[in-house]
């Protein structure tokens, strides 16, 4: 009902998205630090939220934002994520001040704009991790075995980020990432 009222007032509808925040803190489990900031379902409300939270580059080390479709929690264990994986963009430390905010905003716009065409429903959400060594941005999809969908999403995503043509981004299945290892998880796909 509220959504219909907003649309009647000229707002541009979106499927509902949820924005989450967490802060890695050794004193408690990651899950306990996860907080839902808000949900929104119009373009106008997206910008109201975006304008009122800190830019990712201003967050302190250990913090994450996550934007997920309403009903999907930003964790591997969620039934919509557990068979999925992520397109991962790792940034060099100095890029926090030159590229991070642009890349994260571009990621958000790809998601809420549903810019992955018929493979859009495969996208569950996106996560940004602010870390000492390297910040990371990832787009999570729900089915790591859906090669056609995963590759389509990866190609569009890389193009939208305007990464150099020599840059390579990798896709990792969550089942591989979840295994504790001293090695980086292997890339299932690359674009």
């Amino acid at each position: 009902e509220e959504k219909k009222t907003k649309e009647a007032a000229g707002a541009h509808p979106l499927p509902r998205w949820a924005l989450w925040f967490s802060k890695n803190d050794r004193s408690r489990a990651w899950r306990d630090s996860l907080q839902l900031i808000t949900k929104f379902d119009t373009v106008e409300d997206f910008w109201a939220v975006y304008s009122n939270i800190k830019l990712a580059s201003r967050l302190s080390t250990g913090c994450d934002y996550a934007l997920f479709r309403d009903g999907i929690e930003p964790m591997w264990e969620d039934s919509m994520n557990k068979k999925g994986g992520r397109w991962l963009v790792c940034l060099a430390r100095q890029q926090r001040h030159t590229d991070l905010d642009r890349l994260w905003l571009e990621t958000l716009l790809c998601l809420i704009g549903e810019n992955f065409a018929e493979h859009g429903p495969e996208v569950c959400g996106a996560v940004i991790n602010i870390r000492t060594k390297r910040d990371k941005i990832a787009v999570w999809t729900r089915e790591a075995e859906n090669q056609e969908g995963v590759l389509h999403i990866g190609r569009i995503y890389k193009e939208r980020l305007r990464l150099s043509s020599t840059a390579i981004i990798g896709y990792q299945a969550h089942v591989d990432t979840a295994v504790k290892s001293s090695f980086l998880p292997k890339n299932k796909f690359m674009v």
């Binding site: 907003k6 007032a9 000229g10 707002a11 541009h12 509808p13 979106l14 499927p15 119009t42 373009v43 106008e44 997206f46 910008w47 109201a48 975006y50 304008s51 571009e106 716009l109 790809c110 809420i112 704009g113 549903e114 810019n115 065409a117 018929e118 859009g120 429903p121 939208r160």
Partner: peptide, 20 residues
């Protein structure tokens, strides 16, 4: 299907005062 918006369209709303 879900409604698609391109990036320029979305960016046009960034600094628009909230009217709702």
């Amino acid at each position: 299907g879900k409604k698609q918006y391109d990036r320029e369209f979305l960016l046009d709303f960034q600094f628009m005062p909230a009217c709702i």
